[in-house]
Amino acid sequence: MGSRVIQLTDIHLVPRQQRVSKVLDTYTLFEQAIEKIADDLPRLGQVDAIVVTGDVSDHGDEESYRDFHAIISRLNLPYVVIPGNHDKREAMVSAIDGLSVCGETGELNSVYPLSAFDIIALDTVIPGSGAGALSDNTLAFLESALATDLEKPALITMHHPPFDSGIQFMDNIGLKGRDDMARILAQSPREKRVICGHLHNSIVCNIGNATVLSAPGVASSFLTDYRDDAPVGFTQDPGGYMVHDWSHGFRSTYVSLSRHGGLFAF
């Protein structure tokens, strides 16, 4: 029996009437994304959950998290939320049901079992920083989670990518601890896929015997620009979401959030 999840990332929600960087109406953009996904669902088959890989809010305010819950609930699907560098853990826990801190560190690490695979959610947030880190606590959590049910595949979810993207201004706020993560992944015999956000761009890499990929953002897009002096900023190009499923192996599919112009027969 297979399982299937939708991945959303980098929503950067602000309350209605506000704008991110005086440009992005992320409230309306998120509503439009959910409407597009609702239209897509009949074509996707059974979806077990939505995984949101961070930067749910732009400022980390409780109002944005309450708006997030109200809007995403229109899909009538369970959802898993991982914090990003724009998020604030305390506000997330207060406003979103089902979130709880892991131990004394306050990190939001958790495991969500589906029939075909486990979702292992990792918190990479450094409070007050755009960069991320896999703390000793989070690395121990990952190692322990992977050590259970070795026959079951694992979808490992996080915000910061455990690889260099080539986009300099994003790599400057990258992830610490990724070598330790690669070692843990390499030592585990489980089938694994790692998914992340942060880059507002879709990139596929390998780490520690696992495929890892970043998903496009909902709020905006970042250019693929490998120059050392690449300009810092975003575009309003249409973003997208990912569909990850398992049936004799992981499969990950990009779906655009732009509306298509119609279907034409061959």
Rank of each mutant, 00 (worst) to 15 (best):
S165N: 02
G166V: 03
I37H: 01
C205G: 06
K88M: 09
D118P: 05
Q18N: 11
A121D: 05
I71L: 09
R178D: 02
A133G: 01
C102E: 13
F234C: 04
M242R: 12
I72T: 09
F163H: 05
D237W: 13
Q236S: 10
Q32D: 11
L263C: 05
A33S: 13
L13R: 06
G98S: 11
D136E: 15
L142V: 02
E35I: 12
D164N: 07
H200C: 03
H12D: 06
V47E: 01
V255W: 07
H159A: 04
L122G: 04
L24G: 03
F250S: 10
S115M: 11
V125Q: 01
A91P: 05
V125E: 00
S21R: 12
A186E: 15
I82W: 03
S221A: 12
L77P: 06
S110N: 08
D25A: 06
E35T: 14
F163G: 02
D25H: 03
A219M: 10
L75N: 05
P162R: 04
S252V: 13
P42D: 11
V243E: 13
P238H: 12
R89P: 07
F117D: 13
A265R: 14
Q32I: 05
I34K: 06
G106S: 09
I195E: 02
I173E: 00
S64H: 10
G233F: 03
S57N: 10
G166M: 02
D25Y: 03
D136V: 12
R4G: 01
V232A: 02
A154Y: 10
V81D: 11
P153W: 15
A133D: 00
P15L: 13
R227E: 08
S258F: 09
D180G: 15
I34R: 05
R259W: 13
N172M: 03
L29N: 07
L213F: 11
V218T: 12
D179S: 05
D58M: 08
H198K: 02
E31L: 10
D40P: 02
D118F: 07
L155N: 06
G233I: 03
A140E: 15
K192C: 10
T138V: 10
K36R: 15
N201Y: 06
F30A: 08
A38K: 13
L122K: 07
G45I: 07
G60K: 03
G233M: 04
I184R: 00
I37A: 01
P238E: 09
D67L: 15
Q17N: 13
M181C: 06
T138Q: 05
D171R: 10
G45F: 04
Y112K: 08
I184Q: 01
H260N: 09
G177M: 02
L24T: 03
R259N: 07
A147P: 08
A154V: 09
D118W: 07
N172H: 04
L139A: 07
D118Q: 08
D225E: 03
L139Y: 03
D180R: 15
T157P: 04
R251T: 14
F266D: 14
T224G: 06
D136G: 15
L150A: 11
D136L: 14
Y79K: 10
